[in-house]
Simulated assay, not measured.
Amino acid sequence: MLFVVHLAPWIRVRMMGVSWEEIPLGHLANLYLVACGDMLLLVGCQGSFPARGDTFEVFRLDQSTEHAMWVKVEELENWAIFISTDKRSQPLSFRNPERWGGRSNCVYYYSHDSEHWAAFELVKPASSRNSFVFISSSNLVQPMWVVPSMFSQSRDG
C-alpha cells in the first residue's frame, strides 16, 4: 500500500492499493522512491552494490487502473536521478542535466561506504565506456544532493 496525503482544502490521508507483480523484487536491491516531474518512480539496482556490470531499472507508478501498478520505464528522456546510500540524502531528479555538464537518462549513485560515485545509463550495464567512477579525496564531506532554486524552475534551454 501507498499512502497519499492531501493538504488542501483539508488534511486527509488516503490508502492506495498498488500491484507489485510487475516488479522483479527478487533481483533488485537498493530500492528508492523518487519524485520526477509529475511521476513517482521506483528505482532499483540489479546487484547488491552498484558496480561495473550492474544495471539500474526504473518503474513508474501508473494510476490509470483501479489498483495502481508499476510500469517499467525504458528511458528517462531529459531527466537524471541522483541517489546516495547516505540516509540523510533524499533521492532527487533533475531535468536537462546537460545545462551543468551532466547526462540525461542516467542514475547518479554515491556510496558513502566506499566513497565512490558513478553515473549509470538507464538499463545499460555499467562499463568503462558509459560510466565514470570517482573516488572521494576526503571522508569529511559527503555529497548531499541539493537543488538551488535557480535550477528548480521548469525551463528548457
Rank of each mutant, 00 (worst) to 15 (best):
M1R: 10
F3V: 14
F3L: 15
V13K: 07
V18Y: 06
W20P: 07
I23C: 07
P24I: 02
H27N: 15
H27Y: 08
H27F: 13
N30T: 14
V34T: 02
V34I: 01
A35R: 09
A35P: 13
C36T: 01
D38F: 10
D38P: 15
M39D: 15
L40I: 02
C45I: 06
C45R: 02
Q46W: 06
S48K: 09
P50M: 07
A51E: 12
G53N: 02
F56N: 02
F59G: 00
F59A: 01
R60E: 10
S64H: 05
E66C: 10
M69F: 12
V71D: 12
K72C: 00
E74I: 08
E74A: 15
E75M: 15
E75Q: 15
E75S: 15
L76Q: 05
E77M: 01
N78Y: 08
N78Q: 09
W79R: 01
F82W: 00
I83G: 07
T85N: 08
K87M: 14
L92T: 13
L92K: 03
N96A: 14
N96S: 15
R99C: 11
G102R: 00
S104P: 07
N105W: 05
Y108E: 03
Y109I: 07
Y110W: 05
Y110N: 00
S111H: 14
D113V: 08
D113I: 12
D113T: 10
E115I: 07
W117K: 00
W117M: 00
A119R: 13
F120L: 03
E121F: 06
E121G: 09
V123G: 09
V123A: 12
K124D: 05
P125A: 11
P125R: 11
A126M: 01
S131V: 06
F134V: 09
N139P: 13
M144C: 08
P148F: 00
M150V: 14
M150F: 14
F151I: 07
F151S: 08
S152T: 11
S152Q: 06
Q153G: 10
S154E: 11
S154G: 13
D156E: 14
G157I: 06
